[in-house]
Structures are given as C-alpha cells and as structure tokens.
Design a protein around this nucleic acid. Structure first.
Lengths: 263, 263
DNA sequence: CCCAAAAACTTACGTATGTGAACTTTGAAA
DNA sequence: TTTCAAAGTTCACATACGTAAGTTTTTGGG
C-alpha cells in the first residue's frame, strides 16, 4: 500500500508535507491542498542556473521539489557568499511579494525540479487551511533561526567548527524530510561551495575536511557523507539543535523507519 | 503645532510609525491603532539586562520605544555573538508565538523603554488594519534581509569593511526613524560589543576604528558618531543599500527636515 | 570634585587562515 | 576506452587578525 503510494507521489511535494509534519499533524485534506497547490506549475532547471537573480521582481513562491539550491550574494569584486541552502521541501520566501525586488539571487546546485506557486494560490491555501498557515509560519521562523545560527557560525566558530556545524545542520534537515539513510546522506556540494558558505578558502575547507576524516567524525567519499557518531560531531562543532525547533513527537524517522510507521 | 504634538508623543511609538511609513502611507486611524496597541503595557529596563533569555517561552511581542538592545547567542565556552541590533521602533519577532521557546536571548544595551504587545492585540491590530499588516510584513522581510546581509558581512568582508558596513547600516536605520542629526547620530555601543557583532576582537576593532578615523571616513568621539561622507564610507565597506528596501518616496528625512515637512 | 570601574587604547608576539600555483584524481561525454 | 574539464589535494609562504597583558582615558555615582 505505502509502496504503491510512494510510486504515485513521485513528482509530488512529499518532502514539504513531511517537513511541515515535523511541526504539526496535517489532515488528509490539508495534504491534498498542498499537493494541489504544488503541482499546478512545475519547472525543471539544470545545475548551476539562477532560479531568480538579484534585482528581479519576485513573482511567485518557489518550492524545491527535488535537488539542491542556494541563496547567494556576489560582491562587486567577485567575492561570493552563500547565504543559505535550499533542500527538497524548502520554500523560497513564502511572503516575498511584499518587496519590489530581490536583494540576492537563488541558484541551483544540482538539477532541480520546483513548483512555482502564485500569490493567489498561496493566499487560497492559507485562507482555507489554518493548520497549514501555522505550519508555514513555523517554517518561516525556523528559516530565520537558521540564518541567525549562520551568523553565529561565521562570527564565532573556527573553520573546523563551522564545517562540522554546517554538516550537522544539513544532515538533520535532510533527515527531517526523509532524505537520509541511516547515518549517511548525499552531499552534492563542492569544497569551493562549502567555502563560500562558511567564509573559508577552498584550501582551508580541504584541510578541515581531512581533519574531520582523520578523526573519524565524518566519512566523505564523492558526494556521499556519513556521520558515524552525530553526537560526537555536534559536540566538536558546538552544535545545539534547539534552533531547528523540532519539538514535536514522532520526529527523526528516516526513510526505513517511516515506511514501518506507515505500514 | 508639531512641537506641541512632539511633546505629547513622548512615550508613544512614533519611531515605529515613522519606520512603517518608509514603506507605506498610514492613515490617521492606522496610526491611532498603533498608538493604542503600543501603549497598553510599557516596561522600563536598565542597561545590560535580558529582556528575554534563551529557553524562555515567548509570551508577547516587544516593541522598542526608546534605547538600544540586541539579540545574542552565547556558546558554552563563553564566546558570544551579537546577532542583530534593535533600535527604537524595532519589533522583536512579531510572530514568535508559534515557537515553544527562544533559541537566543535579547538584552538591553542602554536603558530601554518598551511596549509589550500581547498576541490578541497583535491579531486585532492586523485584522482591523490591512495596511499595517502589509507594513509589518515589510518590516519582517527587511529584518530577514538584514540578517542575510550580516551573513555576507561576516563571511566575506575584512575587518575594516565589516565595521564600516555596520556603521552605514546603523546610521541609515536610525535616519529612517528620525534619530540622526545631519551626518551624525548616537552610537551607544562599546568596542567590545562592536567586536561581538562583527566577529572581531576588541583589539582589532580598535585598530579598525583608528584607521577609519585616520582616513576621515568617520568621526567618533565618545558615543557620538559622524559620517562626513556617507557615500565614501559605503564605497569602502562595499555597502549596497538595496537590502533595506527603502524604495518609497519621501524617505531619508532627518529630524530637522521632517519638522519642516510637518510644519 | 573624587574615585572606582569601565572603556579605550597600546604593545609584542602567536596563529588560523588566505594566496598562488602547482599536481592528482574523478567522472561524464565522446 | 579515451579525453578533458572540474574537483580535490598539496605545498610554500604571506598576512589579517587574535591573545595576553598591560597603560591611559573616560564616565558617572556618591
């Protein structure tokens, strides 16, 4: 039953639904409304393309259905800062319509499948589903909390801690949308990109990764990351999970566990 | 007339109103509603006190009426990052009720007068005044944009640029609420605090300030900051004002100009 | 006006991280 | 299977910034 459903939902916003259910339980009608909203207009982009550029007028909310993307800002002399990562299930600025133009760009890392959600659809969804409104509020506030934590990361932590902290965050966020398998996940990000996100040079990112590998805190081969002892990595990185506000029961199920629960 | 009014509004949320009017024009009834909401419960705090601590359950929205405060996060080993500054007219998290507990603390820098706005008052205000709802959305989005810009600041800019950028931002935000006089404003922040906000040691903050002074980009004596040539400082700090989203007409009036306009 | 405490400032020295320029490995397309 | 560009890795050296421990100046309460 679940397996049949799972085949059927390929192309659907299951990651968003799963993410929101970390915060609150959604009804069947809630879930259906999300599905309807997120399947109206679907777009595909290749890797390393801008979804929206600095200066553009925001026209709709983008929901990442599949693939990774990031917010970034480029300084005039070429320096670039990655401001945040978008994972499957992430929404790019649910209320961005209020602003005239984008002050930053959003680009893809991998090929991306995304849903464009127009203003009216968004309003209709929240008007008709208070539970979803609440859940979207939660997602907005957690996004802000993540941005604050990045401020702390860049301002106070050493290179080793910064990278460790970022890896913890990404792993836990991926786990929240069912994209981990046991202690491992995909990490389709180059060392240069890790550096642009953590304010470190690619050389130093490499040094730090070697050190994390040597101490057994991570296993990183190609695009696959394993974290054999997440607690240990969290301790090294001074990672306190509270800012992700995962305080509901029944969280932290990975793909297999969730299958069992659903069965 | 204006002067009499000005005496009358001491204790009122004039800075918030002024800030929101950077985004949209408010009606007399809008303004009255803000005043009513923000004068129900007023609190006074001394300097260097927590308004709310990490782990506390958020109970109301705090509106800074007078004085400076900041968000901060303290790591276990004592390192502290200032995550943002609150100036008069700033709201601390208009929708924070959704979360169970604070993941960071908010503390005062100077003595602060603030209004506590309870959930129901907030809902009533936005229910009855769509214009204010929009304006509060704008303020929320600008707050998020500021946090992103801090990420860029900490990740990519040098010490000199970071401090320069922060000073530009604070000056322009103060100007937006009428708290500048010509090219100068109060800056009631110690060098240690500037360091905690920019991820620099107090020693290096001092070096950088000397350099900014020597080059004539700033005049800083005690708690008074002057920026004789804002454009020049912006250029040095790679400061692009677009992230503050001040794109309505009639902005950038300082106290004197505004008096003339109101007369 | 005095005095203690806080803030500002200074110095000498140490180091985490950056720069530039290789060389090596990987992986996808042909 | 070959090829080529991108990614990863390494090295030698440079430097922006941190640390520790002062001294001096400013501030504000009594």
């Amino acid at each position: 039953m679940w397996l049949r459903f799972r085949v059927a939902v390929v192309g659907m916003p299951q990651h968003l639904i799963r993410k929101l259910e970390q915060f609150t339980r959604l009804s069947a009608s809630n879930r259906q409304a999300v599905v309807n909203t997120a399947t109206q207009k679907v777009r595909f982009l290749g890797a390393h393309q801008d979804i929206i550029s600095e200066g553009d007028a925001p026209e709709h909310v983008n929901l990442i259905l599949e693939g990774w993307a990031y917010r970034y800002k480029q300084l005039e002399d070429g320096r670039r800062q990655i401001i945040s990562f978008f994972l499957p299930g992430d929404l790019c600025d649910p209320h961005v319509f209020v602003l005239r133009e984008m002050d930053h760009a959003i680009g893809t890392i991998t090929p991306v499948r995304l849903a464009e959600i127009h203003r009216d659809q968004m309003l209709r969804l929240t008007d008709e589903h208070p539970r979803i409104t609440q859940a979207l509020w939660w997602e907005t506030l957690v996004t802000a909390a993540i941005q604050r934590e990045w401020t702390v990361n860049l301002g106070q932590r050493t290179g080793l801690e910064r990278i460790g902290h970022l890896l913890c965050e990404l792993f836990i966020r991926l786990r929240g949308v069912g994209l981990t398998e046991g202690d491992s996940c995909l990490l389709p990000v180059t060392q240069v990109e890790l550096g642009d996100a953590t304010g470190l040079s690619n050389v130093h990112v490499n040094r730090v990764l070697q050190e994390l590998r040597a101490s057994g805190l991570i296993v990183l081969r190609g695009k696959r990351l394993s974290i054999p002892d997440l607690r240990a990595l969290q301790a090294v990185a001074q990672f306190n999970v509270n800012y992700l506000h995962l305080d509901r029961e029944g969280r932290h199920l990975d793909a297999n566990e969730s299958e069992r629960v659903s069965a």
